[in-house]
């Protein structure tokens, strides 16, 4: 077990009831997610990747075992406490983007901050900053239906980062994107992880994503088959993003960031 893990599962068992049949999905999982690392969860369909992410994201509870996230045993939290905990500590990026269609890009990113009760001036400054960071400040007032797939996923990433979470969980974030856009999204998240020192954990089949991973966890039939960790110290959680002034790097300013051109309007569905 890794010390100072941002999240960990200990002897976790999870099964689902399908009519009269109990289907085991996770069978005694022990795993730790290192802070500020880019972790990829790999495994064939039905191996339990999404279930494991749901447990790490506090969206579901295990039948057995302990789930620790940001130092808290989340099993002991009530539903409301869990909602608040997720809001404060965890960001989500979904395969189908899952933006609220009636809200603009700006409002989608602002939504978690409204739930947190942040004052409007700070809130708007931070949303502006995040949209700048993902290169969408000029599309702030567009609704999801007016954005391309890549742009929607960038809005979703900005929303996931809005509350400066300790952990971002992304379930196959590039599965609904073409390869170029997917690569650009991976680059963006990698850039976010490096610049804002946030832990990212993905499930994916995307080879590009696997190459970008610091840690690789392979899951098969509900058990961990292998864990490959990139050597190195756990990154400090203190970064510009963690401070209160909301200033920080803008996406694209980092020379390490690669081909972002695919994130432009090229993939927007034609009307």
């Amino acid at each position: 077990m890794v010390d100072e893990a941002v999240a960990s599962l200990s002897d976790v068992v999870k099964s689902y009831q399908m009519d009269d049949v109990v289907v085991p999905v996770l069978r005694g999982i022990d795993v730790a997610i290192r802070p500020a690392y880019f972790t990829v969860l790999l495994g064939p369909s039905g191996s339990g990747k999404t279930t494991l992410l749901n447990l790490l994201g506090c969206l579901d509870r295990p039948n057995q075992g302990k789930v620790m996230v940001a130092g808290t045993d989340v099993n002991s939290l009530s539903d409301d406490e869990l909602s608040d905990f997720r809001s404060e500590n965890i960001g989500f990026v979904f395969q189908s983007f899952n933006l609220v269609p009636v809200l603009t890009a700006f409002e989608n990113v602002e939504y978690p901050l409204v739930l947190a009760g942040m004052d409007p001036v700070r809130r708007q400054r931070r949303v502006k900053r995040l949209l700048e960071a993902v290169g969408l400040d000029e599309r702030a007032h567009n609704r999801p239906g007016q954005l391309s797939g890549g742009q929607r996923q960038r809005v979703a990433i900005a929303r996931a980062l809005a509350r400066k979470p300790k952990l971002v969980i992304a379930d196959e974030p590039t599965a609904n994107l073409d390869s170029q856009t997917g690569a650009a999204i991976i680059a963006l998240m990698r850039w976010m992880q490096q610049n804002f020192k946030i832990s990212f954990i993905f499930s994916s089949h995307d080879s590009g994503l696997i190459k970008a991973a610091d840690d690789l966890i392979v899951l098969r039939d509900g058990v961990i088959q292998s864990v490959r960790r990139k050597p190195g110290e756990a990154a400090s959680l203190t970064s510009e993003f963690e401070t209160d002034d909301d200033s920080g790097p803008r996406w694209g300013e980092d020379p390490a960031a690669t081909d972002f051109s695919a994130l432009d309007d090229a993939t927007r569905p034609s009307a």
């Binding site: 997720r86 404060e88 979904f94 933006l99 609220v100």
Partner: peptide, 10 residues
Amino acid sequence: GTVRAVGLRQ
């Protein structure tokens, strides 16, 4: 499901 995941209570 999305807004609940993002932190909206029941």
